[in-house]
Amino acid sequence: MLELKDFCFTVEQDGQSKKILQNIDLKIPQGRFVVITGPNGGGKTTLAKSIMGIVQPTGGTIHYRGQDITELGITERAKLGISFAFQQPVRFKGLTVADLISLAAGKKLSTVQVCEYLSEVGLCARDYVDREVDAKLSGGELKRIEIAGILARGTELAIFDEPEAGIDLWSFNNLIEVFDGMRRRTDATIIVISHQERILAIADEIVVISGGQVVQQGPGAEVLPALLHADYKYTVCKGGMRND
């Protein structure tokens, strides 16, 4: 379904070239629930943005459902059925939550429909539909609206960049249910970037990215125990939340 070959992203910084992603080879079959983890600054967000087309590679190729999409722009990839929930969601002055969810769905939704998506992410919907997606929303509210937008898109491939960040405990449980629901949809391929044990625990497959490279990849049942081992060099937040 998704295949990256010898994928590289290099930037020029202070006259030197810095390799952010190096020779990534990654294959993600359809219907899988894949969790990408690894240390801060390892290159996870860059990788996710590369799949969406926000970051253009400096080398390598990317295929989606057999089609070479390396040269395609963001809009074209979105239309092919790729979605991306930002680690830091974007704020808009003037656009309301209902506007944004409708744009995500690709059609004007009724208030009831918008509310359904918001309820799925644990937002008391009526209070939010007409609010602007601006600086007045809290970080956690914004994250949940971002996720609701991806649910409204309902695409075959959805990438979530640290969806749990800033989300409270109750909503976190809710979020796990949302992902579990998506996982059971056999046609949907989900990639979640996360540091949370409870999200890693429901992964079909875990990919560890560090230093711009894939350092480990395999079935969740094999990789997770290794990650949780005390000697493992990359930290995972144990339990449900960082602070429990």
Binding site: M52, I74, F84
Partner: peptide, 9 residues
């Protein structure tokens, strides 16, 4: 960029 990821030009 965000709106492009939703399929808008």
């Amino acid at each position: 960029l965000k709106l492009q990821t939703l399929g808008l030009t």
